[in-house]
Every structure is written in C-alpha cells, then in structure tokens.
Amino acid sequence: METTFPTRMGDGALVEMTRTELRRELEDGSARAAKVAKVEPLSEVELDHLEEIFASRARFTGVDIGDEVVLTYDGTGMLPAAKIDGLVQYEQSLAADSCELFHPDYCFNAVRKVQATEAQLMHEAQNRLTIPIHYGAQADLGRYSAPDGPMPNWSELLPEGRIDEARAAQEAAAVLAANDMRQVAEALWEAGADGIDFDTSAAAGDAEFFAVLETIRGLRRDYPTMSIEVGMASEFVLGMHGQIEFDGVRLAGLWPREQMRLAAQAGATIFGPAVNVNTTRSVAWNTARAIAILKPCLQEASIPVHVNVGMGVGGVPMHVCPPIDAVSRVSRALVDLLHVDGL
C-alpha cells in the first residue's frame, strides 16, 4: 500500500494523500491554469520539484539558505489600542523586513476622515522603528455607491440593463476614490511614511483599478522617491465597467502579467499579484495553478514582484489562521520555481 502524506485542502482541512495523488493534483492544477489563463503548463522538472515539496511529513519547510526573499505586508501590528507597539513587535520580535501602519477599516475613504491622526501615528512610528513603514489601505470603490456613498449603485443598475448609468456611476466614483487616495497619500508622506500600499486593488473591478493607476501616476510625478506598492484583489480584473482603459489598454479581463505592466507604467515600485484559491481543491492543486498563472508575470517583471500569500490567495488556504505547514510549502514553491522578489 502506497505511503500517504499529510497535506491540506484549500479551506485548510488536513487530509492524507499518496505521492501519486499529489502528483495528479499538481498536474491537474497546472492544466487548469493553462486552460483558463492561456499560459504554458508547468514542465516535468517543475512538477517534480513541487512533488518533492508536498510529499513530505515535515511540519515546516523553507528555501535554501541564501535564497530568502523580502516580506511586505497588508497591515501589521494587530493591537488596536497600541498600534505603534504592534509595529515595534513586528520589527523586534518577528524580524519583519518592513511593516505597514493601517486603519482597521482599511479603506482610503474611511481614512480620509481621520488622516490627521493616522499621519500623527506615522510620525511617531518613524521615530521608533528602523525598518521601512508603508501606510496601507484599499480603494474599495463600492464605498462610493448607494446606500453608503453618493453614487448610484452599479450592482443594482447592471441587472436592470441600465449599462450606461452603471458605467457613469463607476467613472464618477473613481474620481472620488482617486481624490481620497491622493489626499491620504500626501498626508502620510508629509508625516514621514516610506510609501503607500494600494492593497486589494481592483476588488470592485476595472474602474477601481483605473482609479488606483491614475492616483499612482500622479503621486510618482510629484513624489519621485515614494515607495508605491500595488497589491491586487484577485487574479483577474473584473469588467464591471467593461470599457475603461489606462494608457490605451482595456482593464477588464487583465491577468497578472498585464496588470504588472500597467502598475509599472503608472509608477509603482512593487507589484503584488493575487491568485484565487479554490477551497474544494488541495493546496498542491492550488499552488501548481498559481505558479503557472504567475510565471509569465515574473518572467517579464521590470519591478519587484511580491506575490500575495495571505488567507485564500497564492495557494495558501482560505482560513483566518493559515497552517504553517501549508504556508511554508506554498512560500518555498513560489521562491524556488518563480524566483519571486518577495512575498
């Protein structure tokens, strides 16, 4: 009887699989990526390496000494009453390469109302920490639609066939979002931030991605040394608008390579692609799929690529406490096969 190895499903559940089953998962994940994203499937050598990583009973795995990569974050320091102390813990206790100050609402729209106090925190944090400090939030275009915001709700207009009105609402919301992002970025930069992380970008689709790219272009023009990281919300830009373009490129339907090109063109210094996780498939399947989708992006990257490996993206299980056996296998696989610049 073939030996089994403990591994995980995309929802984090611990299961046992044989080497043969793991290989089948890896091959199927790669084939699935090739079909949906129109990319090359992984080679036999790459699949062999992934099989070695996953066919192991080890609690933890890691890259070779010397192959370590830089870590950036979407929010660090989870102590609401002592935010700066939380950042210090990441620096001093967790040996983080960088950290990120954030507001619990994690939305530029919400931060705009409290940007003075957030900027004051950044100012004080810069006096206590040596590692670089980003300020992070997300564009979250939905905040600008009814009932929360001033614009008509395009998710209600679209099912009614009111396409032009839905597009106009998104375009107007993008202007408001870009204004909020710009104001917050300026305030945090003046307080001493090392840069801004536009996280979970394009969560509301192509109009949101447009707002982020336009904001970045303006910031890069006016602040040449600002660190600008773009973290994506998912592997594929949803076409909620469908026609909106940046530099003549239609944003709807873009995959990580094309997303990276536009982020770099706009002026970002770090790009963070996100690949969705299928919770009903294994971590091996999801990892092979993620690597195949991301490979063209890494091959062409002109700026550092920090792949999102949080809860439910990049191959990491969708769970609030992702198990370290899965996180370490995914992280090692991404570094070994894609030579990512960071995570």
């Binding site: 370590e68 990569v69 830089v70 870590l71 950036t72 040996a95 983080a96 390469d97 960088s98 040596t130 590692i131 670089p132 980003h134 090392d194 840069g195 040394t225 660190s227 990281e229 770099a264 970002a268 210094t269 770090i270 990257a301 002109s302 700026i303 550092p304 030579h339 990512v340 610049d341 960071g342």
Partner: peptide
C-alpha cells in the same frame, strides 16, 4: 532584510 526592502521599495530594484 530591511536594507534590501528599502532598495526594492524606493528604487524598484529586483531582488
């Protein structure tokens, strides 16, 4: 790690 991170963040340098 913080020093390498700074070059990626500010200069956009690959790893």
């Amino acid at each position: 790690g913080d020093l390498v991170a700074r070059l990626q963040m500010t200069r956009g340098m690959r790893l």
